[in-house]
Design a protein around this nucleic acid. Sequence first.
DNA 1: CCCTATAAGTTCAATGGCTGAACAAACAAG
DNA 2: CTTGTTTGTTCAGCCATTGAACTTATAGGG
Lengths: 392, 392
Amino acid sequence: MRQRSLRDHNLALVLRHVTAANRPPSRAEIAAASGLTRATVSTIVDELIAGGLVAELEPVSRSGVGRPGTGIVPAGTGPAGLGMEVNVDYLAVCAVDLTGAVRHRQVRHLDQREHSPAQTWQALGELADQAVAAVAARGLTPAGGVIAVPGLVEGDTIRIAPNLGWQQVALPRPEDLGGLRGLPLDVANEATLAALGERHATGLRSFLYVSGEIGIGGGIVLDGELFGGSRGWAGEIGHVTIDPQGPDCHCGSRGCLEQYAGEEAIRAAAGLPAGATVLADLAAGAARGHAPVLDALEQAGTALGVALSGAVNLLDIATVVLGGHYAELIDWLRPAIERELTRRVITARWSPVKVRASALGADAALVGAARAVTQAILDDPARFLATRTAAE
Amino acid sequence: MRQRSLRDHNLALVLRHVTAANRPPSRAEIAAASGLTRATVSTIVDELIAGGLVAELEPVSRSGVGRPGTGIVPAGTGPAGLGMEVNVDYLAVCAVDLTGAVRHRQVRHLDQREHSPAQTWQALGELADQAVAAVAARGLTPAGGVIAVPGLVEGDTIRIAPNLGWQQVALPRPEDLGGLRGLPLDVANEATLAALGERHATGLRSFLYVSGEIGIGGGIVLDGELFGGSRGWAGEIGHVTIDPQGPDCHCGSRGCLEQYAGEEAIRAAAGLPAGATVLADLAAGAARGHAPVLDALEQAGTALGVALSGAVNLLDIATVVLGGHYAELIDWLRPAIERELTRRVITARWSPVKVRASALGADAALVGAARAVTQAILDDPARFLATRTAAE
DNA sequence: CCCTATAAGTTCAATGGCTGAACAAACAAG
DNA sequence: CTTGTTTGTTCAGCCATTGAACTTATAGGG
């Protein structure tokens, strides 16, 4: 039972080298980097090629003396991960291949607050159908799907998604989403998946991801791994206390970060009207140097800085990534955030905390959901190969 | 290079089963629990016995039909871990065997603030000498030492230990501590090690440890593993912000938890005189129902609850362990802490956060330091066996 | 007291996977 | 065209695990 697991481990090890390298590595380079023998790497690469997970490049002549190596690349055709996102006013679907490249992407505006979950699943199913068809046309095989939702997820049910108005909604069955019949399907928190997306897009190994939308979500990546906590509910930075005596929050507490740096709070502080264009209004106002907007962003940044300082003190993390609306407002948020971090993080004087904007922007959760699927394959290729051969 | 590592892995797997079981398991039971074959377990156990890490019990007749199994126990004679603690007004040394049992313990009162680090090392060396002698007399072989200090440690140097008045102090060489010549020696943060000690004493797999002494320290255990953060500085909950506009803190920030729940803050709020008996005075006052003391503890508990809520929201951890002075004051701190947790932790309504007192009390860091040594052996017995045979 | 059933531990040939060395293939430089 | 260098493959050997057979030790029943 453990003899085979050695091979499984090395399968993953080699595949990881192939996907992580910035240049297609040869078998010999993989061997040198991984500590395995060239012989072992050869047989493992053969197995991966047979399974359709990697492919050989045309033997291109490279610089240097000696026989040139044939580059190994993640298979462009092969399994694809489907990412789906249910948000307040839109649905989205995308597909990524093993390299992490987005091969399909589609967004459809639909306000979930006006529809039942069943209707949402129906609409999402149509998008998923089209994605499966588009992906298949490119020679890829869908290998599974993950749905990102802005709420607390426990196992296969959505406990509560306040901004969607959902409570205790069950994950749809794969066959309810049409083309996903027979494939593994999962739900997870939007911000958590966005953090995963950022992890791959940026290459950062440890960071705190904070996303400002209507609510504030967060995700924690530690040493390359998503940290979920005991029950997968980690990262809820939106309800960290900024001021114990602060304004009441809909969560039942007082002085939560969301009351200072949530979209609604910033809008109100800036004196802007409610509506669908709050983000655009804020960005425009800030760009024009409108004082109430700048002050509102400064206050939000200060509150964010206080919350982030606590998190950094607790976790000793060197980088903070701002996503969602924050990414577009970063220029006006950053000064206050960095001021608070410098002041409040006890180790900041030796190693300052870096604050950067999301690399994926609004697509982070969507792409992260899709990558969760491919990541599972990369982490345990043997399992994927087993199910693949079992299906034939 | 990886063929051997399979054996190494299984060596650790079997040893873990032996130490984790609450009743000496037989080879057959280990096999059933670990998924290995009885044959494999037999050869592995033989290797562990030969290396002196485990031992067979006398074949005691147990209930049930069939040939009774011979229990396997961690070797009572064998490697011992040395834990050392440098605190403000005392030094301490202890030794634990592989079972985690404390086999030697000695405390010596010495105020570090009146002495140089070199003098501290000298005094600690004397204690270590005696510990090594005492341990050897019991048939144990010291396998390494870890020193716990109340400060920030980076690699082999103590960056800063405010309450000791230390800055940039280097770890002493093993030969400077007498009997430790030739053994691996390490330093680490006191609260971090205390968390490790609690992890083993309580068997909890994930919790947040908070220790209230003159300063406030913390440690995070996730899924059985100590979480150190990027640079080992995780757990600094003492400087999480409670109120951004709160009183100045010596760390340069404002409104840190230490300003509300540190020993000095509680003492001042309770109207007690400064001195060496603050803890005893507080406990006595609270037991007598003295109102100013009760109010001070209530306030401290509230601040602790706010800080812990933020941490729990962020990490999704189900249990909080209170150590140091907090352990003795828990009856008066708990109501306020739990009130804030219930109110501020977003998932508390479904799964309340448990608050409990340290199981090891004041010895947590000391025992944790010693266990760090034995834990390293348990985690990678092959390495230990290799150095052991190399030395012969 | 003997026989049977049951479970623990050991022995041993077989298997799976890794290793190291030898070898063939592909290329650059002279 | 030869030499030197590096890549990839082949193959015998080794190491660890496996599964089955076997021995040992106990309880229970006649």
